[in-house]
Design a protein around this nucleic acid. Structure first.
Lengths: 348, 348
DNA sequence: TTTTGGCACTCGCCTATTGTGAGTGCCAAG
DNA sequence: CTTGGCACTCACAATAGGCGAGTGCCAAAA
């Protein structure tokens, strides 16, 4: 029972984890007795360590090395032992600096956020693209390209532009296109794209032949916009600094790295994991196997959701070795999410 | 003098390189005598190998291993020894299949090309984004978002859409925006964006105060479009299958891999190298150090330019270990470039 | 002159052996 | 409960020997 851990045991566990995070080597009773302020001999420490091992907080990688935290050890550490010092003003300034605030393209902002995370932590930064519950039709425009090809430009929400080239069965002159777009804009501006879609389909069914097929193309496009936003883009992420992971000794096995990188490219596993974090209402941490994905067994993932308006729309975070500096990473990720949210919210 | 290489020496060199490419181990006189059809004893072969080594075509990694081709050896091999069998119909079909022909978004097509290259070769595929010499103004549209924010949508060339949110000093009503866009479209449709830019600047200088600052914003945007296309996007590439390189034994040194991946992310070195290939009028090969970039010392790069219309606009290629199956990769890259060109050219 | 078999030699790699040191568990004395 | 002592374990490094693939050279054969 964890609650049963003595004050002393907890303190020693804390020091041990901190020490192991710092230099990555199993820590023995000797060093621990020096590092902890308790005036205890190595022998006493060994007793406590034996207890901690029996309870599953630490293990020795082999008989005569020091001890190393287990996942359970890390978990207890971050849950109850960790002292997160808040970020210094200077650090906050650094984050702000590296965030590409002001770039009108939100995609660029997200990319800069993941770069920033990876640069500051020397690990891998990741930011999911914001999902949109509501996609509001704003404006559509058709531009004739050549005989039967028309460029359709659809603006949704606050200035998101989607465009697609439509190959049609017959040609339309500019005024016909104008008429159609006028009609569509008049009827659908401001409506949710779900609604638009079903209404268009109804309309189409009702008037059948009379309906020209540019309309049909417009539906198709609207549908694609919906698909793209809902299923593809929103279920995607930007990543930066994957190569950073190669610097960490504990991940230097090429085969493991390969599998990890493949998972990064495959995307669905990582995505699924990040999706779980979107529900959490603050910093979420997966340590080692906790993630449930084997490739991440020796990694930890620290995430925080970010929002636009009052609505959480995505998460950002850091992927690195289990042995990461949680007390630095956690406030960093937290603050980054706040700053990103702030930057994303429509000014004024 | 290479030309002085005896028939026999050339043949042996060829067999040696092929063999080494096949199983990646230094090849000795014994195996070489078995593999070459020449009925020669290992001893005779050794004499020839000694010559080849003296001339710098092969080396032995250490005293008692077989020989391995040098860069010079590979170079001679691909230049004069290589027998490129053309692709089988089935292989061509495979390429076609994996190319996302028909996706209206050209970016997706390029991405699928790099994926295809990496998948087929088990190495890294790369495709530069097409550069555009001429960017023709086609159509601009302003859409009011909120009080002083306007969404500007600029269409250039055949259906490329750029958009940007403009923050203005004062508000314009819909009809004012309409007027401005009408004016711009009337004057500039079809013109090159360079021309547009200078004309707009002149106009602006001429009429100074009278000119409203949406016009200024329009110029700014046009400029940005130009910049983005000319300097940033066109000077960029899509890559796929970086992780594949980790499967190759000769690249399994984590430190080297890290540097390589960093170069992939840094982009400018790779880009510079690919830029050189755009000039070549066919398959271009850099073997090992030939590329001039240290990170690529143990890699080879095989590229071919692709074109839109009659104009070469980009290159595609493969990056892998020096010990790659050139006789397969070369025709593959060649054919891929052809198919990509075909897919990019405006249908009909 | 070219080819070939023979032979001594080199050297990377694998395995076994041994020593060293950090760290442990246990115990008995403080 | 703490501590010093002590025997023990075990990864790691260094060393040595055996093996085998491959070489260079030479003298004899073709």
């Amino acid at each position: 029972m964890e609650a049963g851990l003595s004050e002393r045991a907890q303190h020693l566990l804390k020091v041990l984890v901190e020490r192991y995070i710092r230099d990555g080597e199993p820590v023995g009773s000797r060093t621990l007795s020096r590092d902890s302020d308790l005036e205890l001999s190595p022998a006493s420490i060994r007793n406590v360590m034996a207890d901690l091992e029996e309870l599953g907080f630490i293990v020795s990688p082999h008989a005569s090395a020091g001890r190393v935290p287990t996942v359970k050890g890390y978990r207890f550490f971050v849950d109850t032992l960790l002292t997160v010092r808040p970020l210094a003003q200077q650090e906050i300034r650094l984050i702000r600096q590296q965030l590409d605030i002001g770039d009108p393209n939100p995609q660029a902002l997200l990319a800069s956020a993941s770069s920033m995370l990876s640069a500051i932590t020397h690990m891998t930064g990741v930011v999911t693209l914001p999902r949109r519950e509501h996609i509001a039709w704003r404006h559509i425009e058709f531009l004739p390209l050549s005989d039967r090809r028309v460029l359709a430009i659809l603006v949704v929400n606050e200035g998101e532009v989607q465009n697609r080239i439509l190959n049609l069965d017959r040609s339309y002159d500019a005024s016909a296109l104008q008429q159609i777009s006028n009609y569509l804009n008049r009827h659908f501006a401001g409506k949710d794209i779900h609604t638009v879609r079903s209404e268009l389909l109804n309309e189409l069914r009702r008037t059948r032949e009379s309906m020209n097929n540019l309309m049909l193309a417009a539906i198709t496009m609207a549908e694609k916009v919906f698909d793209a936003r809902g299923a593809e883009e929103a279920r995607n992420y930007v990543m930066a600094g994957e190569a950073n992971l190669m610097e960490w000794a504990e991940l230097s096995d090429v085969e493991k790295l390969r599998r990890l990188f493949e998972a990064f490219n495959q995307r669905h596993d990582i995505l699924h994991l990040l999706d779980k974090c979107i529900a959490a209402d603050g910093v979420q941490i997966f340590i080692g196997e906790e993630s449930g994905y084997q490739v991440l067994d020796e990694c930890s993932v620290v995430t925080a959701p970010y929002s636009v308006g009052d609505e959480v729309v995505g998460v950002l975070g850091v992927i690195g070795p289990t042995r990461m500096a949680y007390e630095r990473v956690i406030p960093l990720v937290d603050m980054s999410a706040r700053l990103l949210s702030a930057a994303l919210n429509p000014r004024k």
